[in-house]
Amino acid sequence: MIILDVLTVILLVVGLVFFFAGSIGLLRFPDLMCRVHALTKADNIGLACISLAVAIYSNDWLIGLKIIFVWLFILATSSLMSFIIARRINMSNKIISGDSR
């Protein structure tokens, strides 16, 4: 079905745009915390678009379900990882890290 192929290509390109935005954000943003912002948000949407594109292209609902699981897993781990990184960046700032010492 040609409309599915067109949809796949569109989603892939949109996903690429978001991933690219994340990488450029890594270069453009001034501060370490802002860069984590850019990476987390842009890359997650990019991943969502590309996963959707692959799921549509595969034409099989079982494979699509598998891809949704993979997407959810990566979503959870990457948001947790961004939290871990953000916390690590602020470790030296006593107020934020809540170090009572």
């Binding site: 897993f73 781990t77 947790l80 990882m81 939290f83 871990i84 916390r87 170090d99």
Partner: peptide, 17 residues
């Protein structure tokens, strides 16, 4: 000890998966 908390939560998700 306080650094373990987030890794602990990450492991709860990642290790069984």
């Amino acid at each position: 000890p306080s650094s373990n908390f987030l890794l602990h939560s990450l492991s709860k998700l990642v290790v069984p998966a």
